[in-house]
């Protein structure tokens, strides 16, 4: 069983060192298995993204990792403790072992460099032995793979649609055949049709290359459909983790139930509107208008 694990995060805590300090991730322990899609669900501000950035050590001050460890179990059998690497080792680890697809499809690409150059960056950093021609060929092949087409190598990000940009990001994330891909709301800014295409593409690519995915989103129905397992996060803690089926059919935690109930269903009764308890100004404002 242990050899099937790819990433073990234990007692991981991150806090933002502001006044008063914000504990964004509290004591999170989670395991990612080889080849699975692990969904990470929760409302905005619950610490999903902070956790993902923490695993890649991408957090900027004032965010501080206060405790815990993240150990990556490499294919070769080595265990890599992410917190003990120095900067150069960390840079070599990033993208090679674990790549990321980011939230903002619009801003994740440098606007003044061609997408070809941004793809080739990855190779010139991690594969210094590659020739310029090989780098270009490989980048073109990646763009073909995600359906953008190698003809777009010389395009700038503003010349592509949002969906195409996100595909370029996925191509980039695939470049070094990483074992783990962290996707932070990869479809948030896209319309449902494009969303669907991207999701299907991710599923196909995973079937082809066998990498694991940590898929972060607030869209629980989407996760139910694509994930093997789902972790529900709230206020920095993981409140429930289970297989997608179990979570849907038999949610244990009260918050998970409320989250599931808050999505409108096509059939059945009209549900209640879930809000955090507190004085609601909305109702009185609306009342005053009429």
């Amino acid at each position: 069983m242990t050899t099937d694990d790819l990433l073990t995060v234990s007692q991981f805590s991150v806090s933002y060192d502001v006044t008063p300090p914000v504990e964004a991730v509290r004591d999170v322990s989670i395991t990612v298995r080889r080849g699975e899609i692990l969904g990470l669900a929760g409302e905005s501000g619950c610490g999903k993204t902070t956790l993902a950035y923490g695993i890649q050590r991408l957090l900027k001050p004032p965010a501080v990792i206060t405790s815990g460890s993240a150990v990556f179990h490499d294919e070769s059998g080595d265990d890599i403790d992410i917190n003990t690497m120095d900067d150069a080792q960390m840079r070599a680890f990033r993208w090679e072992k674990a790549s990321m697809v980011f939230q903002g499809a619009m801003n994740a690409l440098n606007p003044i460099i061609t997408i070809g150059a941004q793809l080739q960056d990855v190779f010139s950093t991690h594969r210094p032995a590659m020739t310029r021609r090989d780098r270009k060929l490989e980048s073109g092949r990646l763009l073909d793979l995600v359906g953008v087409g190698s003809a777009r190598l010389r395009s700038y990000p503003h010349e592509l649609s949002g969906g195409m940009r996100q595909r370029v990001m996925i191509a980039m994330a695939l470049a070094l055949k990483p074992q783990l891909m962290i996707m932070d709301e990869p479809t948030t800014a896209l319309d449902v049709l494009v969303q669907r295409e991207i999701i299907e593409q991710i599923s196909d690519l995973r079937a082809e290359f066998g990498f694991s995915v940590i898929f972060i989103t607030h869209d629980l129905p989407l996760l139910l459909e694509i994930s093997d397992r789902i972790a529900v996060m709230r206020e920095g803690r993981i409140v429930e983790i289970d297989t997608a089926r179990n979570l849907y059919q038999n949610p244990q935690n009260d918050y998970t139930r409320r989250l599931l109930a808050s999505f409108p269903s096509l059939t059945g009764e009209r549900g209640g509107f879930v809000r955090r308890p507190g004085p609601s100004t909305l109702a009185t404002d609306a009342g005053g208008m009429f």
Binding site: Q56, S99, Q103, A108, N110, T125, H126, M169
Partner: peptide
């Protein structure tokens, strides 16, 4: 975001500084 992406890609800090941050 593109600066974070550049860092996540494992690029050298000098490269992130010149090609991604300073250039823009």
């Amino acid at each position: 975001d593109y600066v974070t992406v550049a860092q996540a890609k494992g690029l050298k800090p000098s490269r992130v500084l010149v090609n991604y941050a300073a250039r823009n």
